[in-house]
């Protein structure tokens, strides 16, 4: 009886961790797509609406799905307090926000670099920077999709199978 219980606990734990790791693979392309749509929305608001970043962040926090919306919500709050420059606010918000995402280091670099150019250029140059960042993110997204296709199912089954292996070894 105890054995059966122990075996099922082990099996449950490994399966769950497999699912959690697989979820990272599933979420990454999704979040990358959210970032891309955030940037596209920014582009049109900057180009045609000439909306200041503070308001823009507020708009985006309402338009976009979680978790990207949280980033813009926090950015808006930080800017609205009026104590920090955009660069400081952007970088701090990214740092605070990062644990909640499934994105990797490379994406973080891209977004931080984009933040450094934001608001310092006229509309035309701003557009170029957004386009460049979009291209980078698109490349990352393709890579993330490939990784998802290759790994998501495998990791999920691997979790279950590893649990099974451990159980069998102990039996």
């Amino acid at each position: 009886m105890i054995r059966l219980l122990g075996a099922s606990v082990i099996l449950f734990a490994t399966t769950v961790s497999g699912i959690l790791i697989a979820r990272g693979y599933r979420n990454r392309p999704k979040e990358l797509r959210q970032w891309r749509s955030a940037l596209q929305a920014m582009e049109s608001e900057i180009l045609y609406g000439k909306v200041p970043i503070e308001e823009l962040a507020d708009h985006l926090s309402q338009q976009l799905p979680a978790p990207v919306s949280f980033f813009f919500r926090d950015l808006h709050r930080s800017l609205a307090s009026g104590k920090k420059s955009l660069l400081e606010a952007w970088n701090e918000t990214i740092e605070d926000f990062w644990p909640a995402t499934s994105l990797k280091r490379a994406e973080k670099e891209i977004i931080i670099q984009f933040g450094a150019t934001l608001g310092t250029q006229d509309a035309d140059n701003q557009k170029k920077h957004i386009q460049l960042t979009l291209a980078h993110l698109e490349r990352e997204e393709q890579e993330a999709r490939a990784a998802r296709a290759a790994n998501e199912k495998m990791i999920k089954s691997l979790g279950f199978l590893a649990g099974l292996l451990i159980v069998l070894l102990f039996l």
């Binding site: 900057i46 000439k50 909306v51 200041p52 970043i53 503070e54 823009l56 800017l79 420059s85 955009l86 934001l118 608001g119 310092t120 250029q121 006229d122 509309a123 701003q126």
Partner: peptide, 8 residues
């Protein structure tokens, strides 16, 4: 307000 493009 850190949005240079608004000043064109």
């Amino acid at each position: 307000r850190y949005s240079f493009y608004t000043l064109e």
